[in-house]
Design a protein around this nucleic acid. Structure first.
Lengths: 341, 341
DNA sequence: GCGCATTATCGAAGCGCTTCGACAGCTGTC
DNA sequence: GACAGCTGTCGAAGCGCTTCGATAATGCGC
């Protein structure tokens, strides 16, 4: 494997000149730079990572702390992971994956060994030991998700509160006054991240302000949970003309199947909105209008915020991404006969 | 951050003594070792990764090349990833995740920079450019999946041929003489890995030898594909009394739903076997007897084989894992009335 | 044409570790 | 009691980079 020494010799310059040509930290004559670049190409030189870390105090590696357990919606987690990798690569960073019981200890280890420049933390829980750990380590970081009360670290998330409000606004503006919600499995709600709380807060508040009647079901995991939840919702809210999903795909599918079984048409009999949808709501039957979860934007921002801290550009900041709306025609004015059970 | 120098001073020895105490490559007096260990604990010393790489020619990092695209069955891929991470951690190795268009170039880059000691390659396709690349780089490696005709590199996979034979044996021994198969989506079959070919080969061969009638459907992706496939299979094989799934969960679910719709009971009217199941076949309705895909075993073997090559212990070898059978009661003797469409 | 910036380049130190060779102090042997 | 062979420890070299300070070489104003 070629070293910087080989390159320097081939180009007839000293190694420091090669180094500066590569980093651009001092000016190099155009002709010299060209000779160096040619030598690099010919020798297929790649700088030794270890040497670079040791000398430069820069590793070009970002840790991704991902609690990838049996829980959660795996396809979504996977998309977060690949999206983070993609974003990191765009800055010539590699990603060290910390998972399976090592999401916490791995951060400490990798940081203590100076293996990483920073960390992107996903699957952030309401009370997350990674917050104090990362803070104590002084490690450049970005959290995907917003731990309550944290404002001294970079956090990125969808503005769930506003997404909740927007969901109501969207449907209320179309004329609906009774909106059911199928939320995440209750196992998430208790234990996990606080985005559900934020969504619910915005949603309920907006309903209150607009005088919209509403009820929420927190179903069991899986398709069956979705079916049951829809039935219970109809009992709770007999005049329901609109339904908001704030849950994962399997539950949505279960509920949609039930709706189809009952012979209800969307949006004729029921307007439906997929809120904060991490899945492809356009591939459902029928395709659903959605407030998408801007997964890629979140991951790319996270990586960029973390790297900004590595470069000591700017301070940690909490970023709330404004929700958007994707119309796929599953929302309409309430029909004359709202609910004919 | 404490360095080996700090430890040496605190323990009153030279840095080489600390290094040897840590690596165990030379004998150290027990009392000295204890002093050193105490100093390490007190100072919370962790060896600097860059220095170690540079001096030791060992990075303690394994790359995982994973084509994590929009295709494929994401939950399964995710489980491979976490399983590899877990196995690597058991050997104090970290995992660098190469994905999203970087599975190939990333190997070259990481290897050229001496960032990694080896690579685990997953999602191996029939013709995979990573095979010649890794061979040319001389990089310690292990492939999860067996590229046809490769015997000079470490490859690990389920013995799909034998799994195919076992599937037939299992059902034929129970008395079945007409077995339908629902395979993977045809988009996989054409383009991707060759495990499908190997399974089919074993299956068909065993059917031929035993005089068992069979037909296979390669459905569309998704639940609907499963439903359709089952219907087509009934037309093709009207006396079918047993069904083998060699596909992903959504297709299985679709077919099972169709079977339930038709009022057929399992195993009363139809015996069902989930072959090479990467999903939890016990959580289906009904739970299915299965030849499980030994995902963890594959990943752990892969990591161990790769690390054996790093340590220059032994030569590359192709490992075929013997299939096992998990009885969940979905297989019985064919009923008196086999198929009452 | 002199001094003074400015530009382009070099040499050397040092990052924190591993490992080799050296050597002091022992034990055991003939 | 001289010598070989251990065992336990040390010093120093060197891994391949980055970066600092020094030094030529150049351009510029007057």
């Amino acid at each position: 494997m070629a070293t910087i020494n080989d390159v320097a010799q081939a180009a007839g310059v000293s190694i420091s000149t090669v180094s500066y040509a590569l980093s651009g930290k001092r000016s190099i004559a155009a002709s010299t730079r060209q000779r160096i670049m040619r030598a690099i190409d010919e020798l297929e030189y790649e700088p030794n990572a270890g040497a670079r870390m040791l000398a430069g105090a820069r590793t070009n590696i970002l840790a991704l702390s991902a609690p990838l357990g049996p829980d959660g919606h795996l396809p979504t987690h996977m998309r977060f992971v690949t999206s983070v990798v993609e974003a990191a690569r765009a800055h010539d960073y590699d990603v060290l994956l910390l998972a399976t019981d090592d999401e916490v200890s791995g951060i400490r280890r990798a940081a203590s060994r100076s293996l990483i420049d920073g960390v992107v933390v996903m699957g952030v829980a309401t009370i997350d030991e990674r917050v104090p750990l990362v803070r104590r380590l002084g490690l450049p970081s970005a959290f995907i998700g917003i731990p309550p009360g944290v404002d001294d670290m970079s956090c990125i998330d969808l503005d769930f509160d506003r997404a909740g409000r927007d969901a109501v606004a969207m449907l209320a503006d179309a004329g609906h006054t009774s909106i059911g919600v199928i939320g995440h499995p209750h196992s998430y709600v208790d234990r996990d991240t606080n985005f559900i709380r934020r969504f619910t807060h915005g949603f309920d508040e907006e309903c209150r302000q607009r005088g919209v009647r509403t009820a929420t079901q927190w179903p069991e995991i899986g398709r069956t949970g979705g079916q049951q939840a829809y039935d219970l919702l109809r009992e709770q809210l007999p005049d329901m003309t609109a339904l908001v999903f704030h849950c994962n795909e399997p539950i949505v599918e279960g509920a949609l199947r039930r709706i189809a079984e009952l012979g209800l048409s969307i949006p004729g009999d029921l307007s439906v909105l997929a809120a904060c949808a991490s899945y492809a709501a356009d591939e459902l039957e029928p395709p659903l209008s959605a407030i998408p979860l801007p997964l890629d934007e979140m991951c790319h921002s996270a990586v960029e915020n973390a790297l900004a801290l590595v470069d000591a550009l700017g301070d940690p900041k909490v970023t709330l991404i404004a929700p958007t709306f994707l119309d796929r025609g599953s929302i309409a004015a309430p029909g004359p006969v709202a609910n004919q059970a």
